[in-house]
Computed example of a mutant assay.
Amino acid sequence: MNLNNLTTYRKHLHQYPELSGQEKQTSRHLIEDLKKLNPTQIITNIGGYGFAVIFDSGNTGETVMFRAELDALPIQEVNTFSHHSKIEGISHKCGHDGHMTILYGLAQKLQKTPISKGSVILLFQSAEETGEGAKAILSDEKFKSITPDFIFSLHNVPGYPFGNIICKTGTFTASVVSLAIVLKGKTAHAAEPENGINPDIALQELIFKIKQLENPNQNAKYFSTIATVYAALGSKDYGISAGNAELHFTIRCWALEQLNTLKQSISKIVETTCNKHQLKYHIEWFEEFASNHNNKTATKHIEQAAKQLNYNYIEKTHPFKWGEDFGLFTQHYKGAMFGLSAGEHTSALHNPDYDFPDSIIVNGVSMFYQILKQINA
């Protein structure tokens, strides 16, 4: 494995990021390079710009899939290093450039050291950041023809020493959903607010009542966080009593069942409050991520691979609170996601100054290849 070459490759991907659902050039670039590694088959345009690269041994064995993400974020990069993003307002601030490079490195390894049993599928997924990508892939007929026996993914995790493997059986990442509540009353002259319907009191009541549903104790079975992310009322026109308002939240729970219960409770609160204040309303739910449920056998393979490679294995006590749409895959197939630690002093994910640490590319490739060897031993 040539880390210098893979580092160069990762830095090239970093310079040309594309937003969710728009990863046309990223996909084309990867496909052209992966063709040179002589895979058995490449299936393109799965659930958008996603694609699958298949290495088939021709002998009976398990089909193992590994997934990486193609998309970047709408964040303006502040880094000034030579490989900084060349696209204004868009950058790889979640490390998907590194994840793609790890799968590319795995493809190189599979070309040099072919598998003797079963098959490997490298899945490059579009639109992970919006929660739409996995859903689109699972509903695509082309994906249904390559059903895996196991599916794995990783995510780099800043805040831990370089190269540690972080995992747990069961819930690994939270169930997440965001919502927007639009309130419509009636504007009036600010001198005569009684002639209108101002949603100001309703807005305050909704924030208070919805926040009361939160249970931030991570040890609780029904843990949840409810973050108020946006609120707006009226406009800066001082002769007008406001007639419209908007309120947004993001909700996170350990279990999808708890998330659905909270959605029902919030819908009821909004209905009751708006009826009380004679307001019309609309609720929109979006960017929903199912929790990753790590299969016991798949998790065991991750732990065994880490120990075989002499990587420090950390058994996570609580799930991570961020969302990841890989959770949809683990609802349908035996699979697991693990964290690959990106360094204690690496900037946090989604920060404008974050950059994927290239030193852990080898760890990622080695973990995936070792898992594959174990399953088709």
Rank of each mutant, 00 (worst) to 15 (best):
T8K: 14
H12K: 11
Y16M: 13
P17R: 11
E18M: 12
T26A: 10
D33N: 13
T40K: 07
I42E: 12
G47H: 05
G50H: 04
G50D: 02
G58W: 06
N59H: 15
R67W: 04
I75F: 05
I75T: 12
Q76S: 15
V78N: 05
T80W: 03
I87N: 13
I90K: 05
I90L: 01
H92S: 01
D97Y: 00
H99M: 11
H99A: 10
A107G: 09
K109A: 14
Q111P: 03
P114G: 04
S116N: 09
I121L: 00
L123V: 14
F124D: 05
G131M: 06
A136Y: 05
F143H: 08
F152S: 07
S153G: 15
N156V: 07
P158E: 09
G159D: 06
N164W: 13
K168Y: 09
T169G: 03
G170Q: 01
F172T: 09
V176N: 13
S178Y: 01
I181P: 04
V182N: 14
K184S: 13
T187S: 13
D200T: 05
I201P: 07
L203H: 01
Q204T: 15
E205I: 05
I207V: 14
Q218C: 11
Y230M: 14
Y230V: 09
A231F: 02
A232Y: 14
L247A: 08
T250R: 09
S267W: 00
V270S: 03
E271C: 04
E271F: 11
C274E: 10
C274K: 13
F286M: 10
F286P: 10
S291L: 07
N295M: 03
T297Q: 14
E315T: 11
P319R: 04
K321G: 06
W322Q: 12
T330N: 01
Y333F: 15
G343Q: 02
H345I: 10
D355V: 09
P357S: 01
S359L: 15
S366A: 14
L372Y: 05
